[in-house]
């Protein structure tokens, strides 16, 4: 017994070190488990406030770019609106159709923290649960999709970026209705993979890749990117397709969080029938 205590005393620094590292590893594992709401991250109030202050200083340098982006988006929306007005035959006949037409609500938010160069990238925005944001909502920007809300506090939310090694989104090549899954490769913030496109399909460089209607995060048809190049190895069942992402993650300033009024209904139906929604 005496020798045991002597031993423990002699190696106390090492044992203490092991205990501390064990705590760290536990935190890492807990934080990385998919969709676990963790408290200590950038949507924490204090951290969010500091990031916002820091961002307030730097955002003046980007004002010109942001203005151009917003003006461009305004023009696009105006065009859409005119088109919509010109459709004379847009008549809503029953409640279900009305609900589907108004299924998505967009909550604008400002990016206060963003990373693109790690293997697992996250974005922090300045809207939280008080603005109606909940974990699991989809996020898009003016050009294309951005990611999915991981956790939120009252005033801030953390988003899993599309540039995240462990996240993928179900997609299709819009021209041919060819289904696949878009997943980031881990290195270049402008390029992602489109996986599981079988070799019997036909498509060409420049085809747009959009979200499919299979998930409840994004409205079907939201742009993800365009096919940059593709190849197929002898004997492989699937193409290897590189997609140039539509969203420029390195200059992301404003995003829209998508609230889907019918998400709960679709999810519960799919759970009943034992489908797992593919996200």
């Amino acid at each position: 017994m005496h020798r045991l205590f002597h031993f423990l005393y002699q190696y106390k620094a090492f044992l203490f070190f092991l205990i501390l590292e064990a705590i760290c590893v536990w935190l890492i594992i807990r934080n990385n488990s998919y969709q676990s709401a963790s408290y200590f991250n950038t949507s924490n109030y204090v951290v969010g406030e500091i990031l916002e202050t820091s961002n307030n200083v730097t955002e003046y340098f980007n004002l010109k770019d942001v203005n151009t982006q917003l003006a461009g988006e305004n023009a696009r929306l105006k065009r859409l609106l005119t088109k919509e007005y010109q459709k004379k035959d847009f008549i809503i006949s029953n409640k279900s159709e009305f609900l589907k037409a108004n299924q998505y609500n967009y909550i604008p938010a400002k990016v206060v923290n963003n990373s693109t160069s790690r293997f697992t990238n996250y974005i922090t925005i300045d809207k939280g649960s008080l603005d109606g944001i909940k974990p699991g909502m989809g996020v898009i920007a003016q050009d294309g999709i951005v990611g999915k809300v991981k956790s939120c506090t009252e005033n801030f939310s953390t988003i899993i970026s599309l540039l995240h090694e462990k996240w993928s989104v179900s997609a299709k090549i819009s021209d041919g209705e060819i289904d696949g899954i878009v997943k980031w490769q881990g290195m270049d913030p402008a390029i992602a993979d489109l996986q599981y496109v079988g070799r019997h399909h036909h498509f060409k460089i420049g085809d747009s890749v959009v979200t499919s209607g299979y998930n409840t995060l994004f409205p079907p048809g939201a742009l993800i990117g365009r096919i940059q190049d593709f190849k197929i190895d002898q004997g492989k069942p699937f193409y290897k397709i590189n997609v140039k992402l539509a969203t420029d993650f390195t200059t992301l300033k404003y995003v829209y969080v998508i609230e889907n009024y019918l998400k709960a209904e679709k999810d519960s139906l799919e759970n009943q029938s034992n489908y797992s929604s593919d996200e």
Binding site: F17, E21, C24, I28, R30, N31, N41, T42, T124
Partner: peptide, 23 residues
């Protein structure tokens, strides 16, 4: 470890900087 924690919360990488700093 405490210092690594204050860094981690800003990088959304709880535990990683802590573990490396402690080491």
């Amino acid at each position: 470890m405490a210092f690594g924690f204050t860094i981690d919360v800003f990088y959304d990488t709880i535990g990683m900087h802590m573990a490396a700093s402690v080491f």
